[in-house]
């Protein structure tokens, strides 16, 4: 019996997808809720106090001293991990549980840093952008 192309395509596609996703793991790890530029739009350097910021954004993760005042830091972490185990296919035919793994981890750290003067007034603020990227990509090479 000859299968028409319209019926063959979904079967082929499903097979390719199954083989590709065999033994797949997709893991996401997030620390705190990211703060966007819109969230900090209310901060006016030289006017807004740290108390105003805390009222809107919550407490910072750390407060440290500096020569000119105080540095308050809000930290976020976003880690993306994906793994494919091609050896999973052999489970059906081989008594040996063999693994052929490829995996990749993307670690994104982000922070909002506020520099305040000795009166707790925000003088500067900026983001530290080291993002992990948008996609889960297990290809390590």
């Amino acid at each position: 019996m000859k299968l028409p192309l319209s019926r063959l395509c979904p079967i082929l596609l499903s097979t390719v997808l199954c083989v590709t996703f065999v033994g797949c793991n997709v893991v996401r790890f997030t620390l705190n809720t990211p703060i966007t530029q819109n969230d900090v739009a209310f901060i006016v350097p030289g006017q807004t106090t740290l108390a105003d910021v805390i009222t809107k954004l919550g407490t910072p993760d750390s407060i440290t001293d500096s020569y000119t005042g105080v540095v308050a830091t809000y930290r976020f972490l976003d880690m993306k991990y994906s793994r494919v185990n091609f050896g999973w296919l052999l489970k059906f035919w081989s008594p040996v549980d063999a693994d052929l793994l490829i995996s990749r981890t993307g670690l994104g750290t982000d922070a909002l840093e506020l520099l305040c003067d000795s009166n707790w007034v925000v003088t500067h603020h900026s983001f530290l952008r080291r993002l992990s990227g948008h996609s889960f990509n297990p290809y390590p090479f």
């Binding site: 065999v22 793991n25 997709v26 996401r28 620390l31 705190n32 972490l77």
Partner: peptide, 28 residues
């Protein structure tokens, strides 16, 4: 065929600011 996982972490933070006289100035 595929596993999905998500780890979410958040923190509660309390800062108690104490002045030079040893009295609480602010609580955050």
């Amino acid at each position: 065929l595929i596993n999905f996982s998500r780890v979410s972490i958040k923190s509660d933070d309390l800062f108690v600011i104490i002045d030079r006289e040893g009295i609480v100035e602010d609580v955050i």
